[in-house]
Structure formats: C-alpha cells, structure tokens
Simulated scan of single mutants.
Amino acid sequence: MQRTLVIFKPDCVQRRLVGQILQRFEAKGLRIAALKMIQVSKELGEQHYAEHKERPFFPGLIRFITGGPVVVAVIAGPEAVAVVRGMMGKTSGIEAAPGTIRGDFSVSKQNNLIHGSDSPESAAREIALWFQPEEILDYDLAGQDWVAES
C-alpha cells in the first residue's frame, strides 16, 4: 500500500471542486488515509516548494498557495503515486488530456487545481510536512478484494 500527498489548491476550493475530484480517487479504488482543510502559511508553502526557490515564478507560486484555504489529503492504494499522477494529467490544463482532472477542469498552468507527489520519496517528505503521523489512518475497506488483487 503506497501513500501520496494530494493538495486541492485554492482554485479548487474556490471553485467547489474538491468533492468531485476526491470522488474520482475513491471511485478508482484509492482510499483517504488523512484529510484536512488549512490556510497555508508562507513558511509551509516555501518548505513545500523549496526545490523551486531560485526560479522566477517562486514568489507567485507562494502567493497562490497561500491565497486561500486548501484541502490536503493522504491518498493510499496500490501504486498511489503513479495512479494519482496519471489521473491528474499534465501540469498545464490546456495540454492535459480529456478525462484527466486537469484536462476536464483547468485551462491554466498555475491554477491547475491539484498537486500530487511526483515520487514515493517526495510523497514521504511532503506527507511529513503536512501531517503528523497520528493524523494518518490505516484501515480496511469493505469489498477491497473486489477492487484490487491481494
């Protein structure tokens, strides 16, 4: 069972798409291991996007992620990182394929609704930034055997 971090960004919250997008992950067979709504501090935003610190778009990225509340989730399931990334689609909503989250709901590169960890290593780092270990739950889902083989 793999875990990944998903951030429903401020544009997603403001457009009231969180439930619809979260439902896609559940329908796929993934499970919610943690979920909360927060207002991102500048410090947390800078820690999360630290690899972009020297890039010219960094200040705008921080303004965006701190510009309104976000919903943050830990999503778990087989190959969760790759599955979530595939469901999200390309970074630019204009380039993202129809049927993906960004392809269906976004026409922007920055206001692209959602963040998902890009590797298991990034997921571990990011999850530790946003959640305390006791906030993340492991549990069995009724009927899980019908979703994925053991």
Rank of each mutant, 00 (worst) to 15 (best):
M1C: 09
M1I: 12
Q2S: 14
Q2R: 08
Q2F: 03
T4Q: 03
L5S: 07
F8M: 12
K9F: 09
P10V: 09
Q14L: 09
R15T: 07
L17Q: 08
L17P: 08
V18G: 05
Q20H: 09
Q20Y: 07
I21Y: 05
R24W: 10
F25D: 05
F25L: 10
A27Y: 10
G29F: 13
L30V: 07
R31E: 12
R31L: 11
R31S: 13
A34H: 02
L35N: 11
Q39D: 13
S41H: 02
E54Y: 02
R55S: 11
P56Q: 11
F58K: 01
P59T: 08
G60L: 07
L61A: 05
L61I: 03
I62K: 01
F64N: 02
I65N: 00
G68A: 15
P69V: 11
V71Q: 08
V71A: 12
A73E: 01
V74E: 05
A76K: 11
V81C: 13
A82H: 14
A82F: 11
V83P: 01
M87N: 06
E95T: 11
A96Q: 03
A96R: 05
A96T: 03
I101H: 02
R102K: 06
R102A: 05
G103F: 09
F105K: 01
S106L: 04
V107H: 13
V107D: 14
V107G: 12
S108Q: 13
Q110R: 14
Q110A: 12
Q110W: 10
N112C: 10
P120K: 00
P120D: 13
S122T: 11
S122W: 00
A124C: 09
R125Y: 02
E126I: 04
E126Q: 02
F131T: 02
Q132N: 14
E135I: 03
E135L: 04
I136D: 00
L141W: 05
W146H: 15
A148D: 14
